[in-house]
Simulated scan of single mutants.
Amino acid sequence: MTTFKFADSKQTSNNRALSIFDFIFRLVAIVATLVSAIAMGTTTETLPFVTQFIRFRAEYNDLPTFTFFVVANTVVCAYLVLSLALSIFHIMRSATPNPRVVLIILDTVMMALLTAGASAAAAIVYLAHKGNTRTNWFAICQQYNSFCERTSGALIGSFGGIVIFILLILMSALALSRH
């Protein structure tokens, strides 16, 4: 009987450790998605044309794809903040599997939303950097340097959030497989 309790105690402590890592990863993902949304949402650059009075301006909301990126990152960030409560619940009671199943499903949905937003924005950022000579789309990053740097940085944070979601889903699956 003592070995059974020892094995059960070891499994509970392993699940508790996974729950603590889950909580930490959620905090990191909150920062990554929030910083990405803020960086993209505040991206703007103005270039003078011939005179001071005529200017060209590039803003994130000029492209609906970037607006979708900001909304997707904001929704995922809000979800992550709300999911911290379930993550804390798992730290306290690591033996209950039902809320973890809900987290896996919702994490997968949020990862899909974040991937869609980041992938769509990545396509536009690629066009901004490289252009497309076949369709006469010119690379604008030579003129709008700051704009392109900020959008690229926002993408890095968002793709970092996707990697963290993959880790969260794998950890939750591992914890469920131990039950």
Rank of each mutant, 00 (worst) to 15 (best):
T2F: 06
F4P: 00
K5S: 10
K5Y: 12
A7D: 11
S9I: 02
K10R: 12
S13E: 15
S13A: 15
R16A: 15
I20D: 00
F21R: 11
D22T: 14
F23A: 10
F23K: 04
F23N: 03
F23S: 09
I24Q: 10
L27M: 13
I30G: 02
I30Y: 02
A32N: 08
S36N: 06
A37C: 02
I38K: 03
M40T: 07
T42V: 04
T42A: 09
T46G: 08
T46Q: 15
F49M: 14
V50P: 00
V50T: 14
T51N: 14
T51S: 14
T51D: 13
I54Q: 14
F56Y: 15
A58Q: 13
E59D: 13
Y60T: 01
T65I: 12
F66S: 07
F66R: 05
T67M: 11
T67P: 01
F68V: 10
F68E: 03
F69I: 08
V71E: 06
V71R: 03
A72W: 01
A72G: 01
A72E: 06
T74F: 11
T74R: 07
V76C: 06
S83P: 02
I88E: 04
F89C: 01
I91P: 08
T96E: 13
N98A: 13
P99F: 07
R100Q: 12
R100M: 14
R100C: 01
I104Q: 04
L106F: 10
D107C: 01
D107G: 10
T108K: 06
T108A: 14
V109E: 05
V109N: 01
M111Y: 00
L113G: 09
L114Y: 05
G117M: 06
G117K: 09
A118S: 15
I124Q: 12
V125M: 07
A128Y: 15
N132H: 05
T133G: 00
N136L: 07
A139N: 10
I140N: 09
C141E: 09
C141M: 09
Q142L: 08
Y144E: 01
S146Q: 13
C148F: 11
T151C: 14
A154R: 03
L155W: 11
F159I: 07
F159E: 00
G160S: 13
G160E: 02
G161V: 02
G161Q: 02
G161H: 05
I162Y: 00
I162S: 10
I164Y: 05
I164M: 06
F165Q: 02
L167C: 12
L170Y: 09
M171Q: 06
M171N: 14
S172Y: 09
S172Q: 15
A173L: 09
L174N: 08
A175T: 14
A175K: 08
L176D: 03
S177H: 11
H179I: 07
H179C: 03
H179A: 04
